[in-house]
Simulated assay, not measured.
Amino acid sequence: MILSMTGFGRSEGVFEEKKITLDIKSLNSKSFDLNIKMPSRFKEKEFEIRKLLNDRILRGKVDCYINLEMLDNVTDVNINHELVQSYMAELKKVAGDGPDFEYLKMAVRMPDAISSKSEELTASEWQFLKTLIDKAIAKFDNFRRTEGEILKEELQRNINNIEKYLLAVEPYEQVRMDGVKERYRKSLHEFDQIDETRFYQEMAYYTEKLDIAEEKVRLSQHLKYYTEVMTEEDFNGKKLGFIGQEIGREINTLGSKANHAEIQKLVVMMKDDLEKIKEQTLNVL
Rank of each mutant, 00 (worst) to 15 (best):
I251S: 10
L188G: 05
N142K: 15
N252R: 05
L52H: 06
N73Q: 09
I194L: 12
M70S: 06
S256I: 02
E90M: 07
A123C: 00
S220R: 14
T253A: 07
K164V: 08
L104D: 00
Y206F: 15
E214S: 01
A258N: 01
L71N: 07
S220V: 08
E173N: 07
L274C: 08
V180T: 02
I243P: 10
D97Q: 13
M110W: 00
K152E: 15
R109Q: 15
P111L: 10
K265M: 04
R144S: 05
E170I: 14
D272N: 15
V74N: 13
T281P: 03
L219W: 14
L219R: 04
N78K: 14
N80H: 11
K164L: 13
I243Y: 11
E153T: 13
G98Q: 08
I24N: 05
R50T: 02
E202V: 11
K61H: 13
R249P: 05
E119R: 10
M5S: 11
D72Y: 11
I79R: 08
L83Q: 09
S11W: 09
Y165L: 03
N161I: 10
E246N: 15
E163C: 10
A204C: 06
L266W: 01
I2V: 15
D195R: 07
R183A: 13
K164C: 06
K45R: 13
N80C: 09
R144A: 07
A113F: 07
I137H: 07
G255Y: 02
G7V: 08
Q221P: 00
N283H: 09
V94L: 15
D76M: 10
L68E: 15
D33V: 00
K265D: 09
N73T: 01
F235H: 14
L129A: 06
E232D: 15
S187G: 03
A95K: 12
M106L: 13
R183C: 06
K130W: 07
G241R: 07
I277S: 05
A204N: 06
K37L: 08
L282G: 05
V62L: 04
S116R: 14
K37V: 12
E147H: 08
L167C: 04
K278W: 09
R41C: 01
A213E: 12
V217E: 12
K239V: 08
L274E: 10
A258F: 03
L53A: 14
R185Q: 13
F242T: 02
N80Y: 06
E246G: 03
Y206H: 10
I36Q: 08
E173V: 15
I263R: 03
N78P: 00
K238W: 04
E82V: 10
F199E: 12
Y172K: 03
E125S: 06
S220H: 13
S116C: 03
D234C: 06
Y226C: 05
R185D: 02
A204R: 04
N160E: 15
T131Q: 14
K164G: 07
N158S: 14
R145E: 14
V217P: 03
V268L: 13
N236C: 15
E262C: 00
K45P: 02
L22E: 09
E279Y: 11
L151S: 07
V217A: 12
K152A: 15
E17L: 11
V62M: 04
K117T: 10
E275F: 08
N78Q: 10
D63W: 05
E69T: 11
Q193I: 11
G9Q: 04
M110T: 01
M110Q: 00
I49G: 03
M88T: 04
K238I: 03
V108P: 01
L68Y: 09
